[in-house]
């Protein structure tokens, strides 16, 4: 048994430097979040020019800002658009990007596939601003300047990153499983669908979370493709809070908090899967 003095000594063994930086890190996350919550629940009249006024608790907690923000952004309509686009992109990413990752990842010994891999990966280095104008023109010409077009383009934009993640993960899956499936009589697609796809679950979670976060928060692509079509997504509708003469922070922050909720849910579900996957992967 440890004596009290010994216990105290063990307890003292904290890494001060790391603790300090962790504190700084968490403050930098919590402070803006705190500010957002405070402002979202405050009446505009309670806002003052002093920092203390902004950071102070609201005199009365009211949901008026949320109601107004929902009305201005046509919340349920824009939310359903955002969910539709994000959800569709997520499904396409998980199913098709893993399939492409499998096809390329298991054929890397062939030169053609290696080149294809590098070609797709190099897409990560192309900034959206450069291709924005041609995309607007082309989608208009093809008649896909709508939600379908946005999903299609997101699926392409996220392919490089997801391909890299999937091919990387594939290295953890032993080839002998596929050989066993081949002897069992499975076709290549059946092997993918029944053996490889379920085993990639941890990577599906990562891909789904990253893709969903990116598409949910993106403003530019829906802005150039969807504005004026009546199919706005949440980030576009939120631009309404900014006017030539200023920004209505109370309403904007209330709206941001509302938009945060679906992502939070996806993240929590996804994170659970990732942890589960890591634990599964550790026991071979």
């Amino acid at each position: 048994m440890l004596k009290k003095s010994q216990l105290a000594r063990t307890a003292k063994k904290t890494n001060r430097t790391i603790t300090f930086w962790l504190l700084v890190g968490s403050l930098s996350v919590f402070f803006p979040l705190y500010m957002t919550i405070m402002i979202a629940f405050k009446d505009p009249s309670q806002m003052s020019n002093s920092i203390a006024g902004i950071l102070a608790f609201p005199k009365s907690w009211s949901f008026d800002n949320f109601q107004q923000a929902m009305a201005i952004t046509d919340f349920w309509h824009t939310l359903s658009n955002s969910i539709l686009i994000t959800g569709a992109t997520m499904i396409v990413a998980v199913i098709f990007h893993s399939l492409i990752g499998y096809a390329i990842g298991r054929s890397m010994q062939k030169r053609g596939y290696r080149l294809l891999y590098l070609y797709i990966i190099s897409g990560m280095f192309v900034p959206f601003a450069i291709i924005m104008m041609p995309i607007v023109k082309q989608t208009a010409m093809l008649g896909i300047d709508n939600r379908f077009g946005v999903v299609l383009l997101y699926s392409i934009f996220y392919l490089p990153m997801n391909l890299m993640l999937y091919t990387g993960y594939l290295k953890n899956i032993p080839l002998s499983l596929e050989e066993a499936a081949a002897i069992d009589g499975a076709s290549t697609f059946k092997t993918f669908w029944s053996v490889i796809f379920p085993l990639m679950k941890p990577m599906h979670a990562t891909v789904a979370v990253l893709t969903a976060l990116g598409t949910w928060n993106d403003v530019m692509l829906p802005l150039v493709l969807l504005s004026g079509t009546g199919q706005n997504t949440l980030p576009i509708a939120q631009l309404n809070f900014q006017s030539q003469f200023g920004t209505n922070y109370n309403l904007a922050f209330a709206s941001y908090l509302l938009a945060l909720i679906p992502m939070l849910i996806i993240y929590i579900i996804g994170q659970k899967q990732i942890i589960k996957g890591v634990v599964n992967g550790a026991i071979k």
Binding site: P174, S176, L177, A180, A181, I183, N280
Partner: peptide
């Protein structure tokens, strides 16, 4: 034919 592998190659899921 049927084959038994060194690392068993059982489908983990």
């Amino acid at each position: 034919i049927a084959m038994v592998f060194q690392n068993y190659a059982l489908y983990p899921h």
